[in-house]
């Protein structure tokens, strides 16, 4: 069973809000999919509509480096 990882912590809690549902985002389960690979992660998620937020530093950091590694497989 894959290990779930947290790459982003909402600090302070409640600073991110879902515009559509008007509720704070919470830490929730999400999955990154790329080139037939899937990775379970924990990210800020809207508890109502399920909007998953990928912060900029995560997208340009860890996500980008994993993308490059998979592209060369």
């Amino acid at each position: 069973m894959a290990i779930e990882r947290t790459y982003y912590t909402i600090d302070p809690q409640g600073k991110l809000q879902c515009v559509k549902c008007g509720v704070p985002l919470e830490k929730g389960k999400a999955k990154f999919m790329y080139l037939a690979n899937g990775f379970p992660v924990e990210l800020p998620v809207c508890p109502i509509c399920g909007f998953v937020y990928v912060p900029e530093e995560l997208a340009l950091g860890k996500v980008a480096s994993v993308e490059r590694a998979l592209e060369d497989k």
Binding site: G28, K29, A30, K31, F32, M33, Y34, P40, V41, L43, V45, G50, V52, V54, E56, A59, L60, V63, A64, V66, E67
Partner: peptide, 15 residues
């Protein structure tokens, strides 16, 4: 103000 992108697709996890 800002824009960024990633190629990985992110979806809500199960459970």
């Amino acid at each position: 103000h800002r824009a960024y992108s990633h190629r990985m697709n992110v979806v809500k996890g199960q459970g």
